[in-house]
Design a protein around this nucleic acid. Structure first.
Lengths: 346, 346
DNA sequence: GCGGTTTTGGGTAACGTTTCCCATCGGGTG
DNA sequence: CACCCGATGGGAAACGTTACCCAAAACCGC
C-alpha cells in the first residue's frame, strides 16, 4: 500500500519550470496572446502535454474570465429545451467555452433568482436565460451584472439581447390551417396570465393574441372562444371539459402547448369522441412526443436549434463588447400538420 | 447620461470595513466557523445585508471549496433524468450547495470526458455521474480527482459510491406480468452492447439478463427471443419489423425502454395490428409520455426521485470524508400496468 | 553604424477568500 | 497573586492565474 497519493494538481508554475520559461510565457501561450514566438509556443505546448496540465478555472475566474457560460432553464421537463440547448452547444463547440445548465425550479421566481445569482457568483462569462419568469427589472439587474441573452421573452431591453420565435405568426398559421380544413368554431386554451408585463412579453400571451387576430382577420370574430387554464396536462384536461360543456361545441381545439393537447386528447377519449373524426386538436412546440405514432399531433415547430444558435452567437458578441447595441432576433415557426387535424364532421 | 456604472462588486473587505472588524472575522461568520461571538456575528450579518454582499465563488474555489456540485447527464432528452435531478436538488435544497448540470453529448465518451474535466477544472466539490458511458478506468480517474457518485452503473468500485435500480428485478416483474396475462411468446428488444465491461455494468444489459432469467425460471426458455437494436425510437421500429417477420409472431413485446416502445407501436400501427388486441407492448422507465392518454404504455417505474436523493446523500457523505468506504445502493422498481398490455388473442 | 521601432521574454502585483498562526483579555485555579 | 486556559479577534501568507509593466535583443531604414 503506497500512501494514497496526495496528488497536487499540475499548475502553471510546474509547466513553466518544466519548459524552462516564465509563467507569463505559459499564460500567453494558453490564451494565444501576443508576445510569444513560435518556438516558445511549441516548447510550452509540449510541456503542457507532457504534464497533462489543465488551467485552474477558479484562479482564472479570480482574474476575470472563467470560460463558462450558464444556461438557465426553468423546467428541464419541457421537451422543447433540448433543441435550444443543442443549438447553443453546437455553436459553442469550437470555442473554449463550457456550458453549464442551472436548473430553475418550474416557473418559480425565487428559484430562478437563486440560480442566476449563483451563476453570477461563479463569475460566469455570460448567461442565457430561457423563457424566464422573472420580472423585467430583475432581468435588467442580471444583465447589468453579466452579459446576458434572453430567449422567449418578447419586449426590448437596453442591456440584453433577445431571441424569440414569432408566436403570433405561429398561432395564425395554425388557425389558418384549421380554417383551410373547413373549421369555423375553433377554440383556444391559453395559459392564464395576470401580470401586465408578462401579458406583453410571454409567449403564451402572444399565442392567444395571434389566435384572436387570426380569427378576426378571417372573419371569425364571432367564434373566438378562449379558455384560460395552465400550460399543463391537467390544464388541457380541464380546458377540454369546459369546451365540451358548451352549447355549441367547437369543432377544433388549438391548445397553446403540446402538453396541453395531451390533456385535451385524454378528455376527448373519456367523452367518447374520436380525433380527428369528431373534433380536431392541435398543439404548439412540436415536442418529441408529438411525432409518436399513437399521438401524431398537429403542431407548430419553433426553430429550436436556430434559436439556441442565435442566442449563443449574440452572447459571444456581447461578451466581446459589453456595450454594443442590443439586438432582437425573431425567428419564424413552421406548421407541422399531422393526424389530429382533419376537416370537421359534415 | 451618467457614466455606465463600473459597479465594483462588494467584497469581504468592504463588509469588514463597514462592520469595523477584520476580514478574518467576516470569513468566520460566513462559514459559521469557530471563534466569533454572537455580537460579532450579528454585526457582520447586518453589514452583509446592508451591502448586499455575496461571496465570490472563484476566490473561494482557489482556497478549496466552491459550494458547487456537478451533475453529468449524458442526454437531456431522456425524460427519466428530471426525476433523478429533482431528487438531487430536493436533497440539496437546504444546504449551501448549488447544482449545475453538465450536458454530455448523447452516449459520447469524448463529450463526457470534456464535461467531467470541465467540472474538475472548476473545482466542483463533488460530482454525480448519471448513467455514464465512460470506461471503468475513466470513472475511477474522475473519482480520484473529486468525490463522485455514479448512478445507473452496476458494478462496484473502491473510490466511488453507486446508486442503481434493480433492472433484473424490473425486467422479471414485467415478464411476470405478461405471463400472468397468459402470454408465452414474449420477445425483448435490447440495446446492442459489445464492450465486455458495459455488458456487466449497463442497465440495458441487465434488463436483457433479467428477461432471460425470468423466462427460464417460468419454464419459457424455448420462447426466449431477443432482438438487438438500440434504445431509440428507430431501434424500436426496426426491432418490431424483425419480430413481425418471424414465422411465429410473439404475442407480447417487452421493449427495453419506453422510447423503444414508441417505435414498436409505430411499426405495429403500420402493420395494421391493434394494441393490445393483437399484440401487447411494454416499455421501461415510466417516462412522462407513457402516461399520456393515447399512449397509456405499460412500463416499469424506477424510483427516480429516490435515486437522486440517495446519490446526493452519498455525495455529501463522501465530501465530508473522502476516504469512507464506498456504498452501493440498489433500489427496487415498480410495475405500472396500463392499456398496452392485455391477455393474448385467443 | 546609429537612433528608433518591433519583437520577445519575464518580474511582479493584483484578484477575494480562507487558514494558520499569534496576541489579547477575562477569569478561574492552585 | 502568579499561572494557565478558553474565548475572541486579527495579521498575513497562501491559492493559481493574468496583466501591466519594463528590459533586452533584434531588426530597420538611412
Amino acid at each position: 500500500m503506497e500512501p494514497p497519493a496526495p496528488q497536487r494538481r499540475v499548475t502553471i508554475v510546474d509547466v513553466a519550470r518544466h519548459a524552462q520559461v516564465s509563467t507569463t510565457a505559459v499564460s500567453k501561450v494558453l490564451r494565444n496572446a501576443y508576445g510569444a514566438s513560435p518556438e516558445m509556443r511549441a516548447k510550452v505546448r509540449r510541456a503542457i502535454d507532457e504534464l497533462g496540465y489543465r488551467p485552474n478555472a477558479a484562479a482564472r475566474g479570480l482574474r476575470g474570465q472563467t470560460y463558462t457560460i450558464g444556461v438557465m432553464l426553468p423546467d428541464i421537463r419541457n421537451p422543447f429545451f433540448p433543441e435550444i440547448l443543442d443549438g447553443i452547444t453546437d455553436h459553442l463547440a469550437e470555442t473554449d467555452y463550457q456550458v453549464f445548465l442551472g436548473p430553475g425550479g418550474c416557473n418559480d421566481e425565487k428559484a430562478e433568482a437563486r440560480v442566476t445569482d449563483a451563476m453570477i457568483d461563479r463569475g460566469m462569462d455570460g448567461i442565457i436565460l430561457i423563457a424566464p419568469v422573472s420580472s423585467r427589472a430583475r432581468l435588467e439587474r442580471i444583465a447589468s451584472a453579466v452579459p446576458a441573452v434572453v430567449v422567449g421573452r418578447h419586449g426590448h431591453s437596453t442591456v440584453y439581447d433577445t431571441v424569440t420565435d414569432d408566436d403570433v405568426a405561429g398561432a395564425a398559421m395554425l388557425v389558418g390551417h384549421l380554417v383551410d380544413l373547413g373549421h369555423r368554431r375553433i377554440a383556444h386554451i391559453e395559459h392564464h396570465e395576470t401580470d401586465p408585463t408578462r401579458i406583453a412579453e410571454m409567449p403564451n400571451a402572444q399565442r392567444a393574441d395571434g389566435y384572436r387576430h387570426a380569427m378576426r382577420s378571417l372573419g371569425l370574430a364571432e367564434e373566438i372562444d378562449i379558455v384560460s387554464t395552465t400550460y399543463t396536462q391537467e390544464g388541457g384536461y380541464e380546458g377540454a371539459k369546459q369546451l365540451l360543456a358548451r352549447p355549441r361545441r367547437p369543432t377544433a381545439v388549438f391548445a397553446g402547448a403540446d402538453i396541453v393537447a395531451m390533456g385535451v386528447l385524454e378528455a376527448l377519449t373519456e367523452a367518447g369522441l374520436s380525433v380527428p373524426g369528431d373534433i380536431s386538436v392541435a398543439g404548439y412546440d412540436n415536442t418529441t412526443f408529438a411525432s409518436f405514432g399513437p399521438i401524431s399531433l398537429t403542431s407548430v415547430d419553433q426553430a429550436g436549434h436556430e434559436i439556441g444558435g442565435n442566442a449563443a452567437r449574440l452572447l459571444l458578441e456581447r461578451i466581446a463588447d459589453r456595450r454594443k447595441a442590443p439586438v432582437q432576433v425573431k425567428l419564424s415557426p413552421t406548421l407541422v400538420p399531422r393526424r389530429t387535424t382533419a376537416p370537421p364532421p359534415a
